[in-house]
């Protein structure tokens, strides 16, 4: 029997070669994808490209407007906004991507099991999942903060739970549809075990839309992380996070608006880029109907 990771990586390989290339084909895909790659590189190489230490305070130069050498200005402690924005990319991307990766794996497992086995199990899973779906992500996040306490761990849990419903629904809908296909019936009649059918035949055929929706959800996760950080319930100081930066900026909203504007612009542009690129991927893979159907 092939391991799950083996199947997943094979599906991803086929997924990557053609579709990614086609998504980069349009000019919109090039801009959005290019920006995301740039952001990723920024996050990875943050220590080497930041002009200043993100935590270094320089109280004499607090609240200076954008100018050389502080290209995006400084906050009230005189910390360089640009350096903090670059480091913030690390926090935002890693928290959101990790949380969504957890959410996708759990959601796919639940959805596949629900879709394949059906019955009472399916009804229970889908009722619970639909329930979480009707609750706004911020409310789910706040429940987690209440239980675990403020911090990046509860942020991650919150993101993972808040978007779990989409992946579960999407996987289940596809498995249910695929189960009716002739080739699956044939495989069942050949005597294949459920695990074989699920891992070798159903999941590989269902994985592409889930991955793309997962990519889109990373954008939502970034916004949720920033929102919690803004409330002071996410990343705690001195961890640089886009949301927390804006939160500390509200005190000087009128005096130094750049402390709020620039991190917000980065969040907004990132999420728009994620959505545009995700849209190009959906078009390239021709899976719009499969996503809408769930």
């Amino acid at each position: 029997m092939t391991s799950t990771t083996g199947v997943a990586s094979r599906a991803m390989a086929g997924f990557g070669k053609s579709a990614l290339g086609r998504a980069f084909g349009s000019w919109l895909g090039k801009i959005a994808g290019g920006f995301l790659i740039l952001l990723l590189l920024m996050a990875i190489f943050a220590p080497w490209i930041t002009p200043f230490d993100y935590a270094a305070q320089d109280l004499m130069n607090g609240n200076t407007p954008p100018a050389w050498p502080h290209l995006l200005g400084t906050d009230r402690f005189g910390r360089d906004v640009l350096s903090r924005v670059i480091y913030g990319a690390r926090t935002s991307l890693s928290v959101s991507a990790t949380a969504i990766a957890i959410s996708v794996s759990v959601g796919m497992t639940l959805g596949a099991a629900a879709g394949y086995f059906g019955g009472l199990f399916e009804r229970v899973v889908m009722t619970v999942v639909d329930l979480t779906w009707s609750f706004p992500d911020i409310l789910i996040a706040l429940i987690f903060v209440a239980i675990i306490g403020p911090g990046l761990t509860s942020t991650m849990f919150a993101i993972a739970i808040a978007y779990l419903a989409q992946f579960t629904r999407l996987t289940r809908a596809q498995i249910v549809q695929l189960k009716r296909e002739t080739f699956i019936e044939a495989t069942i009649n050949l005597g294949a075990r459920p695990s074989h059918i699920l891992l070798r035949h159903l999941l590989p055929n269902a994985i592409a839309p889930v991955i793309v929706v997962g990519m889109l959800a990373i954008g939502d996760g970034i916004v949720l992380e920033a929102t919690l950080g803004f409330f002071g319930l996410g990343a705690q100081p001195p961890t640089p996070s886009w949301g927390a930066m804006m939160s500390s900026g509200t005190a000087q909203l009128f005096l130094s608006p750049w402390v709020i504007i620039f991190p917000g612009v980065v969040v907004a542009v990132t999420v728009v880029a994620v959505n545009l690129f995700g849209d190009e991927l959906i078009r390239a893979l021709d899976i719009r109907d499969r996503i809408r159907g769930a």
Partner: peptide, 22 residues
């Protein structure tokens, strides 16, 4: 539609305050 479904609400609120209120 793209902006409305992606821009974080709290940041939009801050921009609104900066522009329309201040």
């Amino acid at each position: 539609i793209l902006l409305g479904s992606t821009v974080p609400g709290f940041w939009l609120a801050l921009l609104m305050i900066l522009f329309f209120a201040v």
